[in-house]
Write a protein that binds this DNA or RNA. Sequence first.
DNA 1: TCACATATATCACGTTCTGATATATCAGAT
DNA 2: ATCTGATATATCAGAACGTGATATATGTGA
Lengths: 114, 114
Amino acid sequence: MSANKLTAAEFHILLALADEDRHGLGIVDEVECRTDGEVLLGPGILYGSLKRMVEEGLVEEATERPDPEHDDPRRRYYHVTDRGSEALRAEASKWARVVEVALEKDILDKRAAT
Amino acid sequence: MSANKLTAAEFHILLALADEDRHGLGIVDEVECRTDGEVLLGPGILYGSLKRMVEEGLVEEATERPDPEHDDPRRRYYHVTDRGSEALRAEASKWARVVEVALEKDILDKRAAT
DNA sequence: TCACATATATCACGTTCTGATATATCAGAT
DNA sequence: ATCTGATATATCAGAACGTGATATATGTGA
């Protein structure tokens, strides 16, 4: 839609990786759980987005593996880069603004989402 | 229920129409102004989305014209339907939840745009 | 009536999304 | 050991969506 914008899938992936490195299906689980099953990432959009995001420097494959004791060598863990972190912050800020407008226009009430 | 997922463009259009009926370029202006020029709807996505949204019953062409004194007959004004209103509320609610998560993960500070 | 801005519309092309399919490995049961 | 089902990554074709150029027509003011 406009310059420097993340797709919804890229945004959800970055948000999933914000607090810890995760592997592909770990990202899917975090997003599904966090959105109560409303955002479901299929394999196409997941691995396609991750590939693109590595190329764009938003994420990188993690060098260290969390919990090497109980590891699964098939997994590829991803880590947010500084650039990805900044893109996430900018995008989250845009959506925060949108939610504010929704409140101003009485589309949402102020009650906490639960 | 409504597996009715909105695109980002549809969401911005519904949000623009939430407080008053607007015509095509009026929607573009509202979105551009509200997002500080970060979301720019070109003619393709604008009229394409509106056409689709009428077909899906999210909006309808307005019967009455605001300010008939200084009117421009080329304009086509749009009005949000009940269904569109509900879809907007649901989508805004999802993004509100996402923004909350962003706050929890320390991606945003609490003092937002204003 | 001329020039420019406004307004809607469509098109070709590129990007992104969806769901099916493929391949391989792991973990536990037989 | 090997069978089975779950886990994990990957790719692909077709659909859906977004982009920017182009087209057509009309309003507005000089």
